[in-house]
Simulated scan of single mutants.
Amino acid sequence: MMKRRKNKEENRDHQPYTKTTAIIQVIMTIALVVFLAPILIIINYSFKTKKELYLNSPLSLPEKLNFENYVNAFKKLDLATTFSNTFLYTAISVVILALLCGTTAWAIARCKKKFFKFAYIYFVIGILIPYQALFLPIYTIGYKLHLTNTRFGIIFMYVATGVSFGVFLMTSFMSTVPLELEEAARIDGCSVFRTYFSVVLPLLKPAMATLIIMQAFQIWNDYLLASLYVSKKELKTLTVAIQSLFSAQSSDYTTAMAAIVISVLPIAILFLSLQKYFIKGMTVGAVKG
């Protein structure tokens, strides 16, 4: 039996190079080039001088690495302030969403009453309505509650607009958590809070990582809600500050590209650090949801 298994594995390893495999590799290579090309162009532009940008070919490499664009980005965009604001809004919003959506999804998945079924449908409907279509009521409510131009207001709105997707994602993953573990914890005398934080929460790492990455992407790169709710200079985010470099009269493309590179680094680091959990969360949620 062992010899047969080894022979089968060897045959799999030495399968002929088919046309289907070649086509898939060509498609994947084209997709890789399409996705990498804009990133490489932005990095290339961030090291160019203004003269090289306008006179040389767009695909030509810079004569030397010009870090002056990054220095200008820090000065013109006040990156010490805008970067800190963006990080603060994103971090706090994501933590609140992870805790809130996890507990809500747990209650919906474990309770079979009509109220919880209605609540789940309510959150699903919230996904179907983009918050961009609700800008007027969102701003009206925020203005009347004195939430505009406040850190609490912008964080509150990010949580409010992201909770529907978070609950939907976490509820679909909750079916993978064995109910027997929770029953055993209750028999051992664990309270509801200890059961969730000691038993359920550790098993939700893939879903939590998926939620954190996707919401962090959206909040970090958001421009519309940040520009709507914040007008004070000391509260502006990085994306709003970068937009100020583009105008009808003049545009500082090289500095803007350097700022974009700086803004992408934290999200790239977050994705790389949670990548294995993200992939697992997406695949399990897709199969079990």
Rank of each mutant, 00 (worst) to 15 (best):
Y54W: 12
Y17H: 13
T148F: 07
V192C: 05
M282V: 14
V159E: 05
P206R: 04
V200Y: 00
Q243D: 12
K112G: 12
L181M: 12
G289N: 07
P178Y: 01
G142K: 01
I125A: 14
R186M: 12
Q218V: 06
V192A: 12
A248E: 15
L169D: 02
F168S: 01
L238E: 00
L179H: 05
Q132L: 06
F135M: 15
Q249N: 13
T82S: 13
F83T: 06
I212H: 00
L99T: 10
I187T: 14
I27E: 01
L65Q: 07
L265A: 11
Y89C: 04
P130E: 03
K114G: 14
W106L: 08
Y89V: 15
L59F: 15
A216T: 05
I129L: 11
L238A: 07
F116C: 08
Y122M: 15
S175F: 11
D252P: 03
A226L: 06
L88V: 10
G285N: 00
Q215N: 15
K288D: 09
L270S: 10
I154P: 00
Y17W: 14
I24L: 15
L88G: 01
I39H: 03
A119D: 10
F278T: 08
I213K: 02
V167G: 05
L100W: 09
T140H: 07
S273H: 06
I127P: 04
S164L: 06
E180R: 01
Q215W: 02
S46P: 03
K50I: 14
V287Q: 08
V199Y: 00
L61D: 08
E234H: 09
N72S: 13
P202R: 00
L204M: 15
T82M: 05
V264L: 14
S244I: 04
W220K: 09
V177D: 07
R4Y: 03
A216R: 04
Y70I: 05
S60F: 08
A80Y: 12
V200T: 12
L53M: 13
F74L: 11
L179W: 01
V240E: 00
T90Q: 02
M170C: 07
T20L: 14
P206A: 09
L203N: 11
L88A: 10
I242N: 03
P130Q: 07
F173Q: 07
R110I: 11
F197S: 11
P206F: 06
F74E: 03
L228Y: 07
Y89F: 10
L53N: 06
S273I: 12
G153R: 06
N44R: 09
I42C: 12
L203H: 05
I43A: 10
I187P: 04
F87M: 13
L211Y: 02
S93F: 04
T254S: 10
Y229H: 00
I108T: 01
E182N: 04
K48Q: 08
F35E: 12
T82E: 05
T140V: 08
A185W: 02
L265S: 04
P130V: 03
F35Q: 11
A22M: 11
N44C: 06
M1D: 14
Q215I: 01
F67C: 05
S60H: 11
A22G: 02
R110K: 14
S46F: 06
K288T: 13
A98F: 03
A207E: 05
C190S: 15
R186V: 12
T81V: 15
Y139K: 07
F271Q: 03
I269N: 09
V177Y: 01
T239K: 09
N44D: 13
R151M: 15
L169K: 02
F87H: 03
L32F: 14
I242M: 14
T237C: 05
